[in-house]
Design a protein around this nucleic acid. Sequence first.
DNA 1: TTTGGTTTACGAAAGTTGTCGTATATTTGT
DNA 2: ACAAATATACGACAACTTTCGTAAACCAAA
Lengths: 125, 125
Amino acid sequence: MKQPIKPTESELEILNILWTEGAATVRTVHEKLALTKDAGYTTTLKLMQIMLEKKLLSRDASNKTHVYTAIVNREQTQGQMVQRMIETMFNGSAMQLVMQTLGNHKASKAELNKIRAYLDGKVKK
Amino acid sequence: MKQPIKPTESELEILNILWTEGAATVRTVHEKLALTKDAGYTTTLKLMQIMLEKKLLSRDASNKTHVYTAIVNREQTQGQMVQRMIETMFNGSAMQLVMQTLGNHKASKAELNKIRAYLDGKVKK
DNA sequence: TTTGGTTTACGAAAGTTGTCGTATATTTGT
DNA sequence: ACAAATATACGACAACTTTCGTAAACCAAA
């Protein structure tokens, strides 16, 4: 396991877009970002350049318009962030986090069944 | 709903201690903190003073040794932090967060049953 | 080919965080 | 009563984050 990844809020937003898009230019990322946020193009560019330095992203600079890709794994990063939250706010209890989340969010019957199926699988093992 | 609360990592650690302790002096908080962290006493003091300014904490200064209390609600703060994480990393899907968490953590049979009971309750309604 | 749009690079500024040193006040034990 | 321990206040600092202006390179279309 490598040293822990600790992206900022803004960086996570960008990572999330790249995790979904796969690979994208600054412009693409910026436009997705602009849907929920309000910052200039050069701001997004700068953030992604910094993320490149931090090795959160890689880029293909063979063309003039560079194409960026996330090089940190989605599940692993999510796992680390969730873990951190569990430790600092939920006294280390993952189940407390789960209960908190279930308590605050409506879920479709299908989703609940999915969780139930998952729990069943866990017990059988 | 008030303006969103956005404590830093260090602030959350302190909040968590105060949520558990109820009310405490800087020294008490610092000693709990020192179990997992490594910073000087004045650092903890300063952080708590800043949190006082931000109105995350209140204090009783009637005695020379001040006594601090968290004035942000535990469940509400947890909820907001979880919500932020869901939005920035899980594309707004709380269930994805739940699945991620269940996938990465072992749970006792008792805990699993507790969750299952909770899910049953949700469906009945 | 000139003009205008797009892109990258760079640097600077403002705000925040976490760290601690030092000064000063207060309490306590001998 | 005096020295040692303990507490608060304050300011400074480096690191980091987010923001953007500006310049330079490049491309494309008229």
